[in-house]
């Protein structure tokens, strides 16, 4: 609908994905992935998909992030790549 808003969100989305993949600390990676999920929810709303937007915000930004943090605290936090 508004291409300037969508391009800005896309650029932040790619930046968050890069940060999530490249950080050595896994907790940083997981927080970046939650930011990525929330930005994608904003993008869905900008594209007119409000139902998908709030499902992604609840499930991707909430449940998935909590599960990931629990996994990391049950395993290890360091990562070599």
């Amino acid at each position: 609908m508004h291409w300037e808003l969508e391009v800005t969100l896309f650029i932040f989305l790619v930046a968050a994905a890069l940060l999530a993949l490249e950080s050595r600390n896994l907790l940083t990676a997981v927080v970046s992935l939650t930011v990525f999920s929330f930005l994608s929810a904003l993008l869905y709303v900008a594209m007119g998909a409000v139902d998908v937007g709030f499902t992604e915000a609840v499930v991707g930004g909430g449940v998935s992030g909590v599960l990931f943090v629990v996994t990391i605290f049950k395993t290890t936090r360091t990562c070599r790549d």
């Binding site: 999530a20 997981v30 992935l33 990525f36 999920s37 991707g60 990391i72 990562c79 070599r80 790549d81």
Partner: peptide, 12 residues
Amino acid sequence: RNFVKKLIGMTI
């Protein structure tokens, strides 16, 4: 090589 990173890639 890290499995958590592989899962993050799958999500992306």
